[in-house]
Write a protein that binds this DNA or RNA. Structure first.
Lengths: 220, 220
DNA sequence: ACACTAACCGACCGACCGGTCAGCCCCGAG
DNA sequence: CTCGGGGCTGACCGGTCGGTCGGTTAGTGT
């Protein structure tokens, strides 16, 4: 009952490692490790199941390879814009906007990593922290620490908490976008720009009404 | 949905049923839908697998029942404290603190729901929104809307976004606590009180340093 | 005593899982 | 030309999955 690969419109080139990797990334991202069979990956890649085992020794090895690629994609320098002397608020807004846009651009990879975080127990969490996310997180933390030292940022809030919150907002919005979209009053899911602006504004200046809570300063 | 097999139509309760439900809740919470077999549930409940199918027609039906129970647990009035005339900041702090504490108190239930959110596609998301989370979310949104109308809360931020952020911070921290714990500078994971206080403070007053506050930043 | 029924069980089924294996095809080296 | 080896395949394996089946036990109304 095996159908020959019709591959309509697709190039007839030889199916190789990369195609397997791409197919696996798609499927793992959609349905998670347990939700995807090696047969499904092979079928998506247009090759035989045995061939998948030929290139990657086992399902775990393939999954690990996919994760490595995903991590490599999300890792590269995110915070280059910090060096610039622009307003910190603008930096934060752009940082949030970029991160969110990247997630929406590669939803499979994002979900892959999110799932890994959710499903990781105490032991796995430590490995993830030190090997995958540590660098990125430290970079972010350092950024906020620097902003604190330069002034303009409240000093009694741990930089790590700021980084966590910034990531959390993006992650959560992306993660539950299909749910949020149908919730009453939610109209910011599809407008990344507006969302980033609002979140940055909340994080910077808080929710409190400035007009009422007059502490003796005037706004622009 | 039709139920051709011996239909447990009415609310028939038995010790067996409850034990199955408890076992299923534990296991599903730990390992997710695909990660748990009906045999495992039966074994945990101390009965035969066939008996599980006798009480719940299928694995999906059992999972759905577990989800219903989980939802019922997380739903009950969270925002009773709103009526009180205490400071809104204090209300927010307590709300965040309570929600987080409840998550840590029943991690399996929390992970169950979190996973459901993550794994839900566009179609499932709509069902979840309308049937499970809609009520709770609307309650939260209404709370913030009221606070806005009473003054003390910036009016140009959608209440739904505030609700999303409040939930997002808690959810994310809980979800990735095992990872965060090992990240540099993270010392607020295990101290729910301190965490809630800090987050409420950020949400209310923002990150900006009040002493400096002025928008004219100077390069050093 | 009987009939009826829900709760419960051991054994079993087909489907599918991850993984293996012997061998085919193709191509470059000798 | 032969030869060998890697990409690739269909057939197959043991095991587990969700789910079914025939039958037993316990309780209850008559």
């Amino acid at each position: 009952m095996s159908e020959p690969p019709p591959n309509p419109g697709g190039p007839q080139r030889s199916a190789g490692r990369d195609e397997i990797l791409a197919a696996a990334t798609d499927l793992f991202g959609e349905s998670g490790y347990d939700g995807v069979s090696m047969s499904a990956i092979a079928q998506r890649a247009g090759i035989s199941k045995a061939n998948v085992f030929h290139h990657f020794g086992s399902k775990d090895a393939l999954y690990l390879e996919v994760m490595r690629a995903a991590r490599a994609y999300f890792e590269p320098g995110t915070e280059r814009l910090i060096e610039q002397n622009q307003d910190f608020g603008e930096q934060l807004r752009e940082l949030i906007g970029r991160d969110f846009a990247r997630m929406r651009e590669h939803p499979d990879l994002a979900r892959l990593i999110l799932r890994e975080i959710l499903e990781s127990g105490p032991s796995r969490g430590q490995a993830l922290a030190s090997e995958v996310f540590g660098e990125h997180f430290a970079e972010l933390t350092g950024l906020f620490e620097q902003a604190q030292r330069q002034g303009g940022l409240a000093r009694d809030i741990p930089p790590a908490l700021i980084a966590t919150l910034a990531i959390a907002c993006n992650t959560m919005l992306f993660q539950s976008q299909h749910l949020l979209r149908h919730l009453p009053g939610v109209d910011f899911v599809d407008d990344g720009e507006r969302y980033a602006t609002l979140v940055a504004r909340v994080l910077l200046d808080g929710l409190r009404d400035e007009q009422k809570d007059a502490e003796g300063e005037s706004d622009a």
